[in-house]
Design a protein around this nucleic acid. Sequence first.
DNA 1: GTGAAAGCGCTAACAT
DNA 2: ATGTTAGCGCTTTCAC
Lengths: 350, 350
Amino acid sequence: MAIGIKDVAARAGVSTATVSHVLNGNRPTRPTTRQRVLQAANALGYAQNQAARNLAVGRSSLFGLVISDIRNPFFPEISAAFQDQALLHDMDAVVLNTNYDDHRMLNSVKRLIGLQVAGVAVLTSEIDPAVTALLEEREIAAVYLDLGKVDRLVANISIDYEHGIAEALEYLGQLGHRRIAYIGGPPHLLSARRRKQAFLDSMRATGLEAGHAIDADFGVKGGYFACSKLLAASTESVPTAIVAANDLTAIGVLHRAHDGNLRVPEDLSVIGFDDILMAEFTQPALTTVAVPRSEIGRTAFQALWSMLGEPGGEPGAAGREFRLGTRLIKRQSALPPRTPPEERDASDQS
Amino acid sequence: MAIGIKDVAARAGVSTATVSHVLNGNRPTRPTTRQRVLQAANALGYAQNQAARNLAVGRSSLFGLVISDIRNPFFPEISAAFQDQALLHDMDAVVLNTNYDDHRMLNSVKRLIGLQVAGVAVLTSEIDPAVTALLEEREIAAVYLDLGKVDRLVANISIDYEHGIAEALEYLGQLGHRRIAYIGGPPHLLSARRRKQAFLDSMRATGLEAGHAIDADFGVKGGYFACSKLLAASTESVPTAIVAANDLTAIGVLHRAHDGNLRVPEDLSVIGFDDILMAEFTQPALTTVAVPRSEIGRTAFQALWSMLGEPGGEPGAAGREFRLGTRLIKRQSALPPRTPPEERDASDQS
DNA sequence: GTGAAAGCGCTAACAT
DNA sequence: ATGTTAGCGCTTTCAC
């Protein structure tokens, strides 16, 4: 069943070396030979045995992609973009979920090492230092998300929350808002800390009056209750705009604001992040700071790819820092009107 | 850098064969030797070189999982369940998106064959016959979704829409509904056809009065307009309940029903499928027929796993048919009330 | 421009 | 219970 390089060689009347070289384009071959080989390979339906190839080359055509959980809508787009790039370069990706578990994360990386992956992208929110250490020791190219470091075999992607939030605040300013509150995420998450800091810095920079900043849980419920607190303040300190650290939080805010039995500023404006992508669907009225998911995936691949040297040759480029911008998506965010459905169409499956 | 089996053998003072056997548990070893080997492996941070192993064994520790598009919320859960099972059996999965493209699907399978995968799960809606043929020819274990066939190396998973819809209709009957309409999906999709047929059969069986059955596009918009048509009918033929072939369609129906300017039965009931999972989130009031996504993923893995024989030994079990049931999730589906947020929490990510 | 042959790291007979 | 060793299918040096 297994059709090997020998079969192709035999059929083409050449040596296996030639077949190999034709297939990998590693050295010039006479066009006629080339033809014969290609034809033979095709006729036999030959598929290169990657296992053997990898063994010989010492590295596989696999990249590892470690994410928190593919069920979290934040990741599918990243993963898809990563794989699309991989396909373009004739590589494949093994995507592993850590389920937010450090131990499982380390294990995943060990598995990947066993698979002889050519590189690993770790795009989870928190990264176990043991992982970076392991990858470094094994001299495997790696790219991380919002990890500070960069090295010969370590690239880093960071999201420009600072600019994104500044943009959002500017927008609110144009709308006439002056008292702006913030609802953050769990302080133990790096992204939550960075977003909050960006908000505070940006407020200071623009000279706007910082309302309260409350930490919540990145969930709908957290946003809901945080909003209660904010709106229950004495009249002159009730914010007229709220920036929420992610979209679920923002959805919670909107829910609360329209539940009634609460004094809500006429023109309350809410801004969220489009982290989990449902925002647009569930709350077509929510203005969001869009995180460039596809770009993250694409960039992660490129980062790894660029660090890859020739199998036994030059070392490839050094890792570097990639900074990705956000996009402010403006939708009226005061009252979620009940409108006819958007022309969106996310369907077709099963 | 690369730590090989020899290093472990040396450090443990045994032969490579012993190390191999300890690691794979292929033959009894004296506990003390076992210990020494394990310890040495651990101390060195040894990770089995899968490429070499696969080459020797003739088969990799990889399963292929071919899906339409991981960005479609139907798939992440399937994929995650599949991978969780894989992990349990010390295997890995390479997940490939076809983007609903036959050509890309065939290509994906070819890639997987090159990777020497031990089996392939093709869980897309439509399956190119060339794919089944190729897999069959290469004698690779395969499992499909709603493909009729079953064979020595071909398993099949089918969803029991029939029962699911019957259950839904029974429920509507209990609620007192008699005139029930149906909005289907694009007839070129197998799942759409199967669901529609199940509806019609079930209606006939229960003796309920079948309202109109309209084909739509599996999208929100399609549901919206189909609903317009249904409710615009002459009074005595206006349905009091609508079954929609997927959840986006159902959401469209709900949107339309509550847009005003249309005569809507007091107690209009709507039932959808929870295909894309957002239904619960966006429309907590929609009763749905739940497709068992995780179970599909889990079953797909099990199907492949059971067909795997010993590398060079017995052939493993023959492929068989797996039938998976649906679950009817009852939520009031008449008027989507604007309530405080559910205690749901899908949050936490980067 | 092409071929012969030595491994890549592991497994699995076959020995002991 | 453990060691020796011949490949697995490919790449790649070294000859030609």
